[in-house]
Amino acid sequence: MTDKKVKSVFKQGAISSEFIGESIAKHQTKTSIGAHNIFLGQVRADVIDGKTVSAIEYTAYEDMANQKFHEIREAAFEKFNLTCMHIYHSLGMVKAGEICLFVFVSSPRRKVVFEALEYIVEEIKAHVPVFGKEIFEDDTHQWKVNN
């Protein structure tokens, strides 16, 4: 484990395609990289008992969540030969069809990034205290639970 500082992973609202595009562009100077892999979590308009989800409002236990993201990041760097890794998660309202999670891994070789990305996303889903209020079109809500 390194003693790198714990950074905040959270962004208010949806993660824009411009932001994702710029993140990719920033890596063009890192020419030891031969493979990137990206996961984008998108809010689904689930239909539950005849009502459609129009948005998810995310909240988090932010201090603990940032610590968990940090641990996942450090564990992934130990496990896989990654050149770099970026994780962003939304807080607040994200409408159906918008992006709420952006995970971006890069390595000299492709096999590593396929494995690393799955590992990181599954760890996030299981261990990071983020909570989602699924808001229906009629303004009622229910609480989302990860499977």
């Binding site: 205290p129 983020v130 909570f131 989602g132 639970v145 990860n146």
Partner: peptide, 10 residues
């Protein structure tokens, strides 16, 4: 001490 309901990140 924090009470954490089921996680729903991602």
């Amino acid at each position: 001490i924090a009470l954490l309901p089921p996680f729903a990140g991602g």
